[in-house]
Design a protein around this nucleic acid. Structure first.
Lengths: 346, 346
DNA sequence: TTGAAAGCGGTACCAG
DNA sequence: CTGGTACCGCTTTCAA
């Protein structure tokens, strides 16, 4: 039982009694091929169940029609949504897209980039938190069209999509503060990614400006599980925060679970906020107050920036998106007695 | 600003003053190349930033090292988990994997299959609900190694991973019945996929065997949103079910949300069950009682079946997995007064 | 309108 | 141990 190897263009040519060139012509619909010849070829194609080898075509053409996307973690809907949007847009232009998952590991970022380069993708979108200037610099030299999210890289072949993490987070904290909260917690995940650290920084900066506000910061994995563990830490802390600002929705889901486990009600006892507005945010109970990041738009934009003629942002450009605060049911005015019951951490 | 095209093997050969063959040898680590030559070549490779073109390699070798995976919907963690597991296993054997999403549409299944064939993937895993014998039959002729989940296709180049949907669902319903429930609802999604219909059939069969049990069936999209809408239907129905059996966890999340919206408590007022045991099931509130399908294992198995020498199941074989019932917090003994308050539907 | 042939970037067999 | 050289499957001049 040998595996029958697929028919080739030459097989078709032989069967249709024409040259390879002619078969190629009808496949690509170029030149003027006489109707009779065309029919003969098409019949041969059908009879043989012939499918052109895309790899060979790309090789011969010297250009591929596939885009690469590298993300940190598809389990986080934030990344998945970007993938879907990117793919939808790419498909419109008859491009394919291959995804790679880094699991937040720089080594995998590196190997994924290498793999993409080896596949000779037409363009590469990088949306990860573990990005490092050094690894990306290598790409700049490559000359490959690249778009990176939330990480400014100055290079002629790079487009950048930024989001103002700092002021977005300020908006969240301001909102919570004016709702009367004074004891805060920030739940983040380990990362050296500057834009993400900016969320934490904004949190700190806002609260430090208020002499009557106190806060603590806890860090865990970027997952509901991480959020859950973080919440367990929070509930046993002295600060007893009434407002928990989460780095993103993915962790917030776990945080709420952890709070509930401890018998605390959201938002009656504790307010919780997320970031991203993943679709699940709506289904969390209660529905999560969050910052809506337009992932759909970002994905499309990235694709069109990578596809020549798709009218996206030009390489070398930088664009910044502005998220919107969505107040849902996980936040409420503070009902706790004013003033800390304990000393603030940090 | 022209995009500099990547260095080729020939460039390296020229720079290192050796033949193409020798460069190829050091790249592949085959044959014995003298240390000095090897060094010279490696230096040239480094200096040029050379990366072998994988497409060309695959073409020349006559075999690719990438696996294809086609799923219905990556947003449903069930599929995502399979993807991750498959990829993990594939990576172990130095294979890549490309995923395609069909969004439950047969047309996209067809075009995805064509695309995979065109890419000349080494093997293809199909895990979709919209599978149709006709489209798959085309593949059988292709001779491509294929593994399909939950859809028996007799062909020499096909491996099949089955799950006993019927008896698994029976187990769930039996459990609920013995917990005292008598008024049931089944929440499914539109599908002609036989194995999925079997879940509904099992539900029906069990309950029809109990003269004192009543039930209704509602159908919507496979998503939390679909579940939400289904729940809204349920709460306004005359039957007022005390136990809701969902086709899967993805929908169950929405169902619980919908029940809560209507002021019903889970599990005090209504018990809810899912199927799959996606990671979010744990984070739902309350934690979902569900049937654990070993996706991790399925993904690995699929990969190894497709990779020669990986020791997976042989092509032409069929294997059935046995899910396990996980009783968590979304189900409880029935507290409602016995007997239906309305006539059963169907 | 159609065919011959030279690549595209590698691999691998055969000599030397 | 190294070089020469036919391909792999398809595209694309260049002529006919």
């Amino acid at each position: 039982m040998e595996r029958p190897k697929a028919a080739t263009l030459a097989d078709v040519a032989r069967r249709a009694q024409v040259s390879n060139a002619t078969v190629s012509r009808v496949i690509n619909g170029v030149d003027v091929v006489s109707a009779t010849t065309r029919n003969r070829v098409q019949r041969a194609i059908a009879e043989l169940g012939y499918r052109p080898d895309e790899r060979a075509r790309a090789l011969a053409r010297g250009q591929s029609r596939t885009l690469g996307l590298i993300v940190s973690n598809l389990e986080n809907d934030f990344y998945l949504d970007i993938f879907q949007a990117l793919e939808t847009e790419a498909r419109r232009w008859d491009y394919e897209v291959v995804v790679a998952n880094t699991d937040y590991r720089t080594e995998r970022l590196v190997s994924s980039i290498r793999a993409m380069v080896a596949q000779r993708v037409a363009g590469l979108a990088i949306v990860v938190t573990e990005i490092e200037p050094a690894v990306v610099r290598e790409l700049a030299a490559e000359g490959l069209p690249v778009v990176v999210y939330d990480c400014a890289v100055p290079a002629a072949n790079f487009a950048t999509i930024q989001i103002d993490d700092y002021s977005s987070t300020r908006r969240i904290v301001d909102y919570l503060y004016s709702a009367g909260h004074r004891r805060f917690a920030f739940v983040g995940h380990h990362t050296r990614h500057e834009p993400l650290r900016a969320r934490e920084r904004a949190f700190r900066d806002v609260l430090r400006a208020h002499p009557d506000a106190f806060f603590q910061i806890v860090t865990d994995a970027d997952s509901p599980d991480g959020g859950l563990r973080a919440a367990r830490t929070l509930v046993t802390s002295d600060l007893a925060p009434t407002a928990v600002v989460c780095l993103n929705d993915f962790m917030a889901i776990g945080v709420m679970k952890g709070l509930r486990e401890a018998g605390l009600r959201v938002p009656e006892d504790v307010s919780v906020t997320g970031f991203d507005d993943i679709s699940l945010a709506k289904f969390a109970s209660p529905a999560l107050t969050t910052m809506a990041v337009p992932r759909e738009w970002i994905g499309r934009l990235a694709a069109s920036a990578l596809i020549p003629g798709a009218g996206g942002i030009a390489l070398g450009q930088e664009i910044v998106v502005d998220p919107e605060l969505l107040v849902r049911d996980s936040t409420a005015p503070c009902r706790a007695p004013l003033g800390p019951e304990a000393a603030p951490v940090r």
